[in-house]
């Protein structure tokens, strides 16, 4: 409990909780849209942006955020022209981001250690500003996803019907990409680029195993996202482990337990009732 007195722990817990909430909500929509890899691609791309910002001597988030939003829109728009599949665009954008980050790291300089902090996460680096930005993000995601959940469900379940009903499906896809980019940039501080996808994928995948409604899936995924980050941080503090991997391991354990409880055989027996 003594650890909780430290300001850096409080900041990490607050930012982690808020990012976990946002990722839990976004993850459900991403997984249902079969866009789980968007987070992975953006995380890799953003690492390059951070490398570029550090090389230029700028604040990493101030450059990474707009560039990641641009990359997210590019990933969403390239497949719209029918010239490639969505995962092709993700792979290309992620590769370019990683190449930039690696090339700049190879050029040397004192920022290489800073770049590694974004690669694997560093809770010590979470500032008050990061907490404030995470709070704004969580609020925006909660408002956009929860209040418009019927529209998100329509887009995820049957995009053709959504279009016929007058919904601008592209606008929702672009909005999802932008919000995901913001979540990735902010989450980078806590779990790092390599593990960022877990915040988007594990809580949602766990919730989808047992959910019987869309509202239920959003609620469970949000709770798992927030609790998973807090439990992971606690594990890291008490066992003196790095925070990012601890969070991922806690979330993976939660998924494994849910998978055992909601195994496909049990699902089939329920369906036959």
């Amino acid at each position: 409990m003594e650890m909780l007195q430290h300001a850096f722990v409080q900041r990490a817990a607050a930012a982690g909780l808020l990012v976990g909430l946002a990722c839990g909500l976004l993850g459900v929509v991403l997984l249902l849209r079969r866009s789980a890899l968007v987070g992975e691609g953006l995380a890799h791309f953003t690492l390059g942006c951070v490398g570029l910002a550090l090389w230029l001597g700028w604040a990493p988030l101030s450059l990474a955020l707009p560039l990641a939003v641009g990359a997210a829109l590019l990933m969403a728009r390239l497949p719209e022209r029918g010239t490639m599949y969505g995962d092709t665009a993700i792979g290309m954008v992620a590769a370019v981001g990683l190449a930039v980050g690696t090339a700049l790291a190879a050029r040397g300089g004192g920022f290489r250690a800073d770049l590694f902090a974004y690669l694997f996460g560093d809770v010590l680096a979470v500032s008050r500003r990061d907490v404030a930005v995470a709070a704004v993000l969580a609020l925006i995601v909660a408002v956009v996803v929860v209040l418009r959940r019927r529209r998100w469900l329509s887009v995820a379940f049957d995009p053709d019907h959504a279009r016929v009903s007058g919904l601008n499906v592209c606008r929702y896809e672009h909005g999802l990409a932008v919000l995901t980019a913001c979540a990735v940039v902010i989450g980078l501080r806590i779990v790092g680029s390599l593990l960022m996808t877990s915040l988007l994928v594990f809580p949602a995948a766990t919730a989808l195993l047992g959910a019987r409604s869309f509202a239920g899936a959003l609620a469970v995924s949000t709770a798992l996202g927030a609790l998973g980050v807090l439990a992971g941080l606690a594990l890291a503090l008490f066992l003196n482990l790095p925070a990012g991997p601890s969070i991922v391991l806690v979330q993976a354990a939660a998924f494994a337990i849910a998978w055992l409880v909601c195994s496909p055989d049990r699902g089939r027996s329920r369906a036959s009732v």
Partner: peptide
């Protein structure tokens, strides 16, 4: 295991 109930899907009739 798409997480939506019958009622939720019918409610998407006019999402706007």
């Amino acid at each position: 295991r798409f997480p939506a109930s019958v009622r939720e899907i019918v409610e998407t009739a006019q999402p706007e």
